[in-house]
Nucleic acid binder design. Structure first.
Length: 391
DNA sequence: TCTGGGGTCCTAGGACCC
DNA sequence: TCTGGGGTCCTAGGACCC
């Protein structure tokens, strides 16, 4: 039996969720994104796209192009809630669901056919249920492999369904521009253009060795496979998390050490909390620093004892930032925990003669309070106004 | 026009070990 | 005295995706 893979993609997801819960927005351009001075568009419905508004566009430009649009701040909690409910619909069909992000997933329905019928019938019923239960539309691509299924859904957007039969793959694939290949962005497309490669068919026809010279070993092999219509990757329901991080872009560049310190404390608190909730600790602490001129660097430090306590994370992150950014106005700072290990498998042994510092216990208690009373209920003392206490 | 926030993966160089 | 090759870990940067 040949395999059958679905790629399901919510249409303009954040904007669609907002329209579903605010029906008065139905017939207006809806733009969801950061409302601050440096915000960008996260999602735009199709009415807004007609004005040239799209994801990643600076909000300032969006407002100029579409002055009468409805502009909304993203509500991540609501989008996650709808996302979970939609993923449950998928899991009613098959346990082989691989979420790619909050708004799209692969489904391997090879084994679901006996129960639910042909893939196209499964795709239709998923689209109907999502619309009926959540008031939003999605697009489904159906094919034998992940990449072709994803490409099919991209081409069928919005509110569509497209099946690519195995014997139709190359006719569908080869005329498309190289930028449709997964992993080809602006830079790689430019490299390929220098070799005279413009379509997917051009890439498929080129010997891999020549491709390697242009884009490197791994990318060359990957692109050549995809361009030839081959994609052996399985749908993988559970993927290990590799890192947990948070970052913030300031409304105006920050030079004040106290403001920077407070931001790092908040980020550390957020990241450590998420790590503990997920049952992880990390051996590598990484910071990201973006200067006023947009130059961006990253610095990291690996330690022997994995970290999941905000106090420790903050101490390391703050040191990394001050060592590398002292005196420069900063546009952005970020904190990330890498090299994750499951924290229940950790043998914690306080160093000899060193009293267990107790922060972990304190923060675990705080986790419990936040669980019961909300995330704003308990905050580090130095996040409270006025002015920071000493540390 | 002026560039978010969450991630993943790859490359390359250097340290260190065998 | 000059010079090896492979493997692993760490760090930094960059491309890419949604």
């Amino acid at each position: 039996m040949t395999s059958a893979i679905l790629h399901v993609d919510m249409d303009a997801f954040f904007a669609s969720v907002e329209m579903a819960r605010h029906p008065e927005l139905r017939h207006r351009p809806v733009i969801v994104g950061g409302l601050g001075p440096r915000g960008v568009v996260s999602a735009a419905n199709y009415a807004a796209r007609a004005f040239g508004v799209h994801s990643a566009l600076p909000m300032a430009i969006a407002r100029r192009r579409c002055p009468r649009g409805a502009y909304l701040q993203p509500d991540g909690a609501e989008y996650r809630r709808v996302s979970k409910a939609v993923m449950r619909i998928f899991r009613d069909v098959t346990p082989l669901v691989e979420p790619l992000s909050v708004d799209e997933a692969f489904l391997d329905v090879t084994g679901a056919r006996r129960l639910f019928g042909e893939p196209v019938a499964i795709a239709r019923s998923i689209r109907e249920r999502v619309a009926a239960e959540h008031g939003i539309t999605c697009t489904v691509g159906v094919a034998q492999t992940k990449f072709i299924a994803k490409l099919a859904s991209t081409k069928a957007k919005p509110d569509g369904l497209l099946v690519i039969e195995p014997d139709g793959v190359l006719d569908f694939l080869h005329p498309l521009p190289v930028s449709d290949l997964w992993g080809v962005g602006e830079r790689t497309a430019a490299s390929l253009a220098r070799l005279g490669l413009h379509t997917v068919g051009d890439v498929a026809a080129l010997p891999v060795a020549r491709l390697k010279a242009a884009v490197g070993q791994a990318a060359a092999l990957h692109l050549h496979e995809l361009a030839s219509g081959r994609d052996a990757r399985a749908v993988t329901p559970h993927r290990e998390e590799k890192s947990i991080g948070a970052e913030v872009t300031f409304d105006v560049d920050v030079s004040d050490p106290a403001v920077l310190r407070k931001a790092l404390l908040e980020l550390s608190d957020k990241v450590a909390g998420r790590a503990r909730r997920a049952g992880y600790a990390g051996r590598t602490v990484a910071v990201k620093i973006r200067f006023g001129d947009f130059r961006t660097i990253s610095r990291s430090r690996t330690v022997h004892e994995p970290v999941d306590v905000a106090r420790d994370l903050f101490t390391m992150a703050h040191a990394l930032v001050t060592e590398n950014a002292e005196g420069h106005p900063l546009r952005l700072v970020g904190v990330r925990l890498e090299g994750l290990v499951e924290s229940d498998r950790l043998a914690r042994q306080p160093a000899l003669g060193e009293p267990e510092h107790g922060w972990r216990q304190a923060e675990t208690t705080v986790d419990g309070l936040r669980e019961r009373f909300g995330s704003k209920a308990v905050r580090p003392a130095s996040l409270l106004d006025p002015a920071p206490g000493d540390l």
